[in-house]
Design a protein around this nucleic acid. Structure first.
Lengths: 167, 167
DNA sequence: AAATAAAATGTTATAATATTGCATTTGCAC
DNA sequence: GTGCAAATGCAATATTATAACATTTTATTT
């Protein structure tokens, strides 16, 4: 299901093990400070999500869990873990892909904006206010109160534009 | 499946029959000018989508078609009609709801931005560049080329804020 | 008008994603 | 250890979407 480009990292040569370690450490600390349980399953699911920078589907996670342990968990196991991670801001859901991705900054509640590369399928979470401001401005003109902005932009990332093997 | 608020219109007292008539007229003219066929099924599906301003699911459309004619169409019938309507810009898909909504302006190709009211479930398509500009600006900073921006904002519309029966 | 080709629709089956409901286990407070 | 709440296991099923192939309709050519 994953193509070759799944081996590309979000920037060409970043140390992804560091991404994973940081994410897991942050998650552990955050759950501890919130007094919620970072159970084995939740940890495994988060690790799957952080395996790379591509949004991953619930059933793909299921496959991965089945590889690790001899027992094959059922869908609710994964969905419950994902719900927990979503609630605690540790992952985001990408609605347009029915997939999940690790959150870059779980410490403060937010709904990220994503740049999703059609080519390598990496998704980059944006940390800018420009888009939220624009959305709020546009919404205000309609008397609309924004609660959950969802921005998922499909296109072509810088790295894939360089390696012109696209389309 | 629809709640009571489904009777609210997108603005409090707009003549929705006019919305429908306009949309159907536009669709007919547009298909004629493009020399593509606005068949009975496509027309029925578009009419379902325009029945109100709430995004409607494919299987809800299926139910509606079953009511009209004695024969019950199968899912591919509806999905094929929806694909046609999407291709021709007559409807948009709301990814976060797995649902479809009529396009306000099918004459030029665009991916709309939507304000979706959590309360009455109406979705308003925005016609502003503010958001696209912001997305392009943010994307540019990452060397990312935008192809399909998807903006689906959940919140509370002006009308529902007035009638404080929310939450 | 008959033959042909292309497009649209019908039909069956199935894939992919997600949830419900209830049983069991685990971790923790007392 | 007892009792409770949270977490997980498990079976079934709901929801959304597509694949593959047959049939019908429409348009085009002859």
């Amino acid at each position: 299901m994953q193509n070759l480009s799944s081996m590309h990292n979000i920037t060409e040569h970043h140390n992804h093990q560091r991404c994973i370690d940081d994410a897991m450490t942050r998650a552990k600390a955050l759950c501890h400070s919130r007094q919620v349980k970072f159970t084995r399953i939740r940890e495994q699911v988060l690790a799957c999500v952080w395996a790379n920078h591509q949004p991953v589907g619930a059933y793909t996670i299921l496959e991965e869990l089945a590889k690790d342990s001899s027992r094959r968990p059922a869908p609710p196991t994964v969905y419950r873990a994902l719900d927990f991670l979503l609630d605690n801001g540790l992952v985001h859901r990408i609605a347009s892909l029915n997939a999940f991705i690790g959150c870059q900054d779980p410490s403060h509640q937010h709904q990220g904006h994503f740049l999703i590369c059609r080519q390598c399928r990496n998704a980059t979470e944006l940390d800018t206010d420009i888009i939220n401001t624009a959305i709020n401005t546009a919404a205000k003109q309609h008397g609309f109160s924004v609660e959950v902005p969802c921005v998922e932009v499909v296109g072509c990332c810088a790295h894939c534009k360089e390696n012109r093997d696209n389309d």
